[in-house]
Each structure stands twice: as C-alpha cells, then as structure tokens.
Design a protein around this nucleic acid. Structure first.
Length: 464
DNA sequence: GTAGGGTTAG
C-alpha cells in the first residue's frame, strides 16, 4: 500500500512494465459495471493480467484501489492480490496481505505456499504449511502438493516423510497428483526405493506419474531401470509427451545407449517434438554422449529456437568428442547470436581449449570470466585449473587453485592431474595428501593421476 | 470464482 501511495506521489516504482494502457481508466470502467459480481470478475481479470506480465506497479495500484473502496473484505479478491504479488516476486507484500486477511482460506495459504516455492523460498513455504494449520485451516491436496515440492527442492527427506504421513492421515494417499508429488520428492532426495513403493501403491497413474518415475531412476544413476519403466509405460498404452522423452533420453545419454536413443528419437519426430528447445537439447546431449556428433549437429541445426542451454549442450558435445575447434567456433557464434555465456558454457569452452592445448584462447576466456564475475564458481575454477594444466602452465593452475573458495573432488583431481601431467610427481603426491587430510575421498581418476605421478617420481629416483 | 504433480547443457 505504501508503495502505491509513493507512486501516486510521484515516487519511483520498479518491478516490471505496465501491460494495461491506462490503469486509472480501467479501474473507472470496472466501477461503472452494474453489479458486484461483474466488478469482482473484472478486478480478478486485471490482477491476473498484472500477474502474467509481472506488472507490479499496476498491481499495487489495483490493490490500493481495492483497499480505498472497501473491497478488501472479500477473501476472493484478496487471494487474487496475493497471487499477483507472488507472481511479481514480491513475497513480503503477498505475505502481508494474507497475514492481515481476517478470513484467509485454504486458497489464500495455498497461493502463498506456491509463491514461496516458485521464488525458491522453500523453507518459508514449509513454514506457511504449518502456519495455516495453526490458523485453523486444514491443508487441501493442493497444500500437500506444493509443500512436497518445497521439500523436494530442498532435498528435505525427513521433513517430506513427516508430511507424507500427514497426507496419508488426511486421506490423500490415493490422489494421483499428491502421489506424483511424493514420488518426485523421493526421487529428488535420492531415495529411489521409496519412490518405487509410492509408485506401486498408487491406485491411479497418468503420464505425469510415469514420467516422474522415469526421471527418478534416470537422476539416481539407474538408467537401465528408467528405460524399463519407459517401455512398460508404452505397454500400458500411456502416450509419452515431451517430459517423458526428455527423461528417457537422459537415461540413454547416461548409458550411451544409442539404439534405444534412436528409437526414442523416432517417436519424438513422430509426435512433433523434435524442434522444441528442451527436447532438442536432450537429443543433442544423448547423441553427444553416444559419440554421434553429426546426429547431434543435425538436431541442433533444426531447432526452432535456441537458448543458452542448447548451445551449451552442442558445445559440450563437440568439446567431448575431439572437436575442440568447432566447440570454440560455436561458442563465438553463440555470443554473436546474443546469448551471454554462463558458467557452464565457459567451462565447456575451457574444456575445448584444454583438449587443443590452446593456452592463448584459454587466457582470453579467463579474462572474460573475471569480467563477468564468474571466477568464484567452483566449476569454472575446476575448468581453469584443468585448462592451465593441460596447456602446460602449472603456475597459473596453482594460482587459480589456491584462490578457489570451495574445492570438490573434481578440483583436487584437476590440480593433481596438472602436476602429474607436467612432471611434478612429488607435488602431485603432496596435493594428494592435502586432499586426504581435508577428508575428500579420491576416485579412479585421482589414482590414475597418482600412478602417472609415481612413474615420474620413480624415474627421477632412478636417475639420482 | 481463485490454488496442484513430471523435463534441457559442465
């Protein structure tokens, strides 16, 4: 409300452009409508338009109008105001409306919970779920679905299990959407066995349920099982959609299962999804992992619209299949097409430099990374250490590594590998000991580098 | 006369 007053007084208001030509005139027109029912419908329509176009300023003006003209006793209109603030990303204002609402209902709270979820404020979403109950409002199936989504985003398994029990108690166990939300929760928490149990116990399953099951397997390293579910879904006569295809293709990529991937590609074309960005990206990714660069490129070239993610998939496919030069060309083309590189595309481009031992280009990328403020990303640090190591510049590899705020297994492997590849065996062993003392568990790549390093050390010891 | 579940690149 304050903001609306500020605006009326000429204050600046940021937060999205207006899509309603003249909000004052529009409100006047609504007031001229003959009955309350039509006025309510018209206010709801205007608020919905503000929500869709993220026109926060106009939304505030409508909210101010509703308060001034005593419409704020209507929970129905207030709920639309909450939705508008939520969709415009102004959670504090959305929350304030619900908190001041004398007759908040389940819609009010559910809209707020969903708004917190959408804006990544999952903890607040869960708190709202409990708060509504303290206010005497029983959660509906929609409340459960949204709060489970929040738990899934946070990978909050224990919290999710408590809410699962509450959903059963409330009688929503057999609800297909609640069941799918539960399945997704367990998948996202890495608890595949729980996901399977939920799936098996569901009395009704639709394409979303099946897709969630395929995703849960694919994202938990069970690609083969994901494809089994995909085939079983077809046998059950459920028609796959873009979500299903993307998850199944992801499973093919992780298994490098070309034949199955090609079969899915045929279905994708048949159903007309091939040129969609997300499906196309999944196809590019699958062909890249199956070392079929030409097929990846064919799909990429036919995409109707490309975003930074498709570009990233295509650049990675080139970089990982020995076509570093092409990867760097695509990286430049992506930028000249107006897409800003992010930490992932930079990492792929650095990968390409590493494979080409193109130090100068790598240094150029390093400078752009610093300019765009992405130097602190762990993935970028890892790629830089690796690039400098492979380009024979151990000094800069060390510098980047020493400046990294957070180091994971990949970082240590890159640093140890850089030492080993450049004949600094003892330094590699030294980093290996440091890594162990920090509690980072080595993997097969670490040991491969250590073997290389030991070869060098052994060779040196023989000479002395 | 409002609110709900599943998908892309390192």
């Amino acid at each position: 409300m304050d903001s609306a007053r500020k605006l009326a007084a000429g204050g600046r208001c940021r937060g999205g452009g207006s899509r309603i030509k003249d909000i004052g005139a529009a409100l006047g027109n609504v007031e001229a409508l003959p009955n309350q029912r039509s006025r309510f419908a018209a206010f709801a329509f205007l608020l919905q338009r503000c929500a869709n176009s993220k026109a926060l300023c106009d939304g505030r003006l409508i909210h101010a109008h509703l308060t001034r003209h005593n419409y704020d006793t209507s929970t129905y209109l207030a709920n639309w105001v909450v939705k508008m603030y939520g969709d415009c990303g102004s959670l504090a204002e959305a929350r304030a409306v619900v908190d001041c609402l004398p007759n908040a209902n389940a819609y009010s709270w559910n809209i707020l919970i969903k708004a917190y979820c959408k804006n990544g404020l999952c903890r607040q979403a869960v708190e709202c779920f409990y708060k509504m109950q303290r206010c005497g409002i029983a959660p509906t199936h929609v409340s459960f679905v949204s709060v489970l989504e929040a738990c899934a985003s946070m990978a909050a398994l224990e919290e999710g299990k408590l809410i699962h029990a509450a959903a059963v108690k409330a009688g929503y166990e057999g609800h297909v959407v609640v069941g799918t939300a539960l399945l997704n929760l367990y998948g996202k928490c890495g608890s595949l066995e729980d996901a399977r149990i939920v799936f098996r116990q569901m009395p009704n399953r639709d394409v979303v349920t099946w897709s969630a099951m395929i995703t849960a397997c694919a994202q938990n390293g069970h690609g083969k099982e994901a494809l089994e579910w995909y085939n079983r879904m077809e046998e059950n006569g459920i028609r796959a959609n873009q979500f299903t295809f993307v998850s199944a293709l992801d499973a093919c990529a992780s298994l490098a299962a070309l034949e199955q991937g090609q079969k899915i590609h045929t279905s994708v074309v048949l159903y007309g999804y091939e040129r969609q960005a997300i499906v196309g990206t999944a196809l590019v990714h699958m062909y890249g992992k199956c070392r079929r660069l030409e097929d990846a490129r064919r799909v990429f070239d036919q995409l109707h619209q490309r975003d930074v993610v498709c570009w990233g998939a295509m650049i990675t496919a080139c970089a990982q299949n020995g076509h570093g030069k092409e990867a760097l060309n695509l990286f430049s083309r992506m930028q000249s097409d107006g897409f800003k590189a992010n930490h992932i595309t930079y990492a792929s481009a650095l990968d390409a430099c590493a494979s080409l031992a193109a130090l100068e280009k790598g240094q150029e990328l390093h400078a752009s990374i610093v300019d765009s403020g992405l130097e602190g990303e762990t993935g970028i640090g890892n790629a830089l250490v690796d690039m400098y190591g492979k380009c024979g510049n151990l000094k800069d590899a060390r510098t980047v590594f020493s400046r990294m705020r957070h180091r994971d297994l990949v970082s240590w492997n890159a640093m140890i590998g850089a030492c080993a590849q450049n004949g600094h065996g003892e330094e590699a062993l030294d980093f290996f000991h440091q890594m162990r003392s920090k509690g980072v568990k080595p993997d097969h790549l670490t040991f491969l580098s250590i073997l290389t390093a030991c070869k060098h050390v052994g060779w040196m010891m023989q000479r002395t």
